[in-house]
Amino acid sequence: MNAKAEVTDACDLRFGQVGIACVRVRRVDAAALCDELERRVRAAPQMFARAAVVLDLSHLSNLPDDGAVDALLEAVRSAGMLPVGLAYGTSETEALAKRMGLPLIAKFRAAYEPAAGSTSPAEPAPRAEAAPTVQREPILSAPPSDGMHGAQHHAGSVRSGQQVYARERDLIITGAVANGAEVIADGNIHIYGSLRGRAMAGAQGDGKARIFVSDFRAELVAIAGQYRVFEQIPGDLEGQSVQCWLEGDKLLIARL
């Protein structure tokens, strides 16, 4: 039986979904791009070293010429990541991808098609010195606009044994998080009640995520995989409103 199958099919062709990082380029500056990505790779080598990434040029007002795109791709490579394609933008992007010999990942097809004719598909973000964002997100659930993921609101208490997860967004809890309960968000976490259980922000590796708690009695807090457990809650933090953030690899907690 098996032998027969081998004769008929040389391979199987299957579609599947994979999470892939997307480098959204905000300005055509290969050196700055390389620096920024290098910093990301150093900060989380397991996550970003040799990670497959897609280059998204749709946030630039004008599509750069072939030479500039080549330089950007080279910048990504020298930072230690592997560019595997371009994100779908306009028909010009499609032509560009063809010339570069790269596949086009049809990520935002629906979002961009209506903008046909308009020369600048999206405004560059107002954060002038903000570095290009590297996002690691499943392709299908990527929102079309920049950064406006909104927040997930959970009214009331999160009881022991319950888990609340805000995918690709912030999480707001108006109630207490009990011992043995878990709240997780890919973005920030705000808790307007006691945190007695666990809170994990930046669950997909966003080191800029923060946790805000109005009554701190946590078992564990974590940001982008860096965590602290509290066998004994420090006296100066217990019952206080605090925020937690990441500085390098260090998880810091301070009163608000």
């Binding site: 208490s157 999160v158 009881r159 022991s160 044994g161 319950q162 009990a178 011992n179 043995g180 309960a181």
Partner: peptide, 13 residues
């Protein structure tokens, strides 16, 4: 108290 908290969660779901 911890077990009751768990039960309260189950009652709600």
């Amino acid at each position: 108290v911890r077990d009751s908290d768990r039960i309260l969660g189950l009652l709600a779901s």
